[in-house]
């Protein structure tokens, strides 16, 4: 227990040192010069990037969660394998291939990129929604039903609050993956910060590369933190405490 903790702290310190070294190197070599020289261009690339992510992930959230709820209802249980396998397919195909396929159908541009990113985000949310709802103790649901709660009341008062942690974890994974993958949108003319990254690769120009890549990374880290905060807000206190107690007792 204690050895584990020391190891964890040491790893953390080394990681932060590396980050500091990297930024020191990058700043002293004017690696972020592009951001300073072309702020308007940077803002517009960032905007496109955010647009790609928010629209595709937003639609993915709005479809995956209800879909997950639907196929965990007894009536639709038999379609679970079909839908999960379809979503699996979206995840197994390399992201680049999805982008290529989307371009094949929808042509070049931001629309194709959004569709590709949407398909790519479906599975983690769907899977976690199903896993979260499945993890609700059947006895709890039975007691709720036996006391006269309707199916809707059981869903909103018991099942969804209990599954909130898992669902939010799925959303977080999907959005963070999405932010990274959105850098590839440049390849099919979708724009975003990928434009600078790929320019940097093609021109062997580190300042382009880093001015594009570091903001993408930071964006992913910030969004990850935001979602952790959201988990604190949305997961019922009792479940958070229970989870913590379970982890501490190990």
């Amino acid at each position: 227990m204690n050895a584990k903790k020391t190891l964890a702290t040491t790893t953390k310190i080394i990681l932060w040192l590396l980050v500091i070294v990297f930024f020191w190197w990058a700043l002293s070599n004017h690696m972020f010069s592009k951001i300073v020289e072309q702020p308007a261009q940077f803002i517009s690339l960032l905007e496109t990037h955010l647009k790609l992510v928010s629209i595709s992930a937003g639609i993915a959230i709005l479809t995956s969660i209800p879909l997950g709820i639907l196929i965990t209802r007894p009536k639709f249980r038999k379609f679970e394998w079909l839908i999960v396998n379809t979503a699996n397919l979206g995840q197994t195909i390399p992201s680049l291939a999805i982008l290529a396929l989307a371009m094949g159908f929808l042509g070049i541009g931001i629309k194709a990129a959004i569709v590709a990113l949407y398909i790519y985000s479906l599975l983690p949310i769907l899977q976690n929604t199903i896993a979260g709802l499945d993890s609700v103790n059947p006895a709890t649901k039975d007691a709720a039903k036996g006391m006269g709660l309707t199916s809707t009341q059981i869903l909103f008062r018991v099942e969804l609050p209990s599954a909130a942690y898992s669902i939010l974890a799925g959303v977080r994974t999907a959005v963070v993956l999405n932010i990274g993958t959105a850098a590839l949108a440049y390849l099919i003319g979708g724009g975003g910060l990928g434009v600078w990254i790929f320019t940097g690769i093609q021109l062997f120009d580190n300042s382009f590369l880093i001015s594009g890549a570091v903001p993408v990374t930071l964006l992913a880290v910030i969004v990850d933190l935001l979602f952790r905060g959201l988990q604190l807000l949305l997961v019922p206190k009792g479940l958070r405490l229970a989870r913590k107690a379970a982890i501490d007792s190990v």
């Binding site: 103790n137 006895a139 709890t140 039975d142 007691a143 709720a144 039903k145 036996g146 006391m147 006269g148 709660l149 309707t150 008062r157 018991v158 609050p161 209990s162 019922p236 009792g238 479940l239 229970a242």
Partner: peptide, 23 residues
């Protein structure tokens, strides 16, 4: 209606079935 009926009958099960998200 089963919902109405159940609300007028107390129901206790072995594994208590308390809701973990509620006080």
């Amino acid at each position: 209606n089963p919902i109405e009926l159940r609300r007028n009958i107390g129901y206790v099960i072995q594994s208590n079935g308390l809701f973990p998200n509620m006080t």
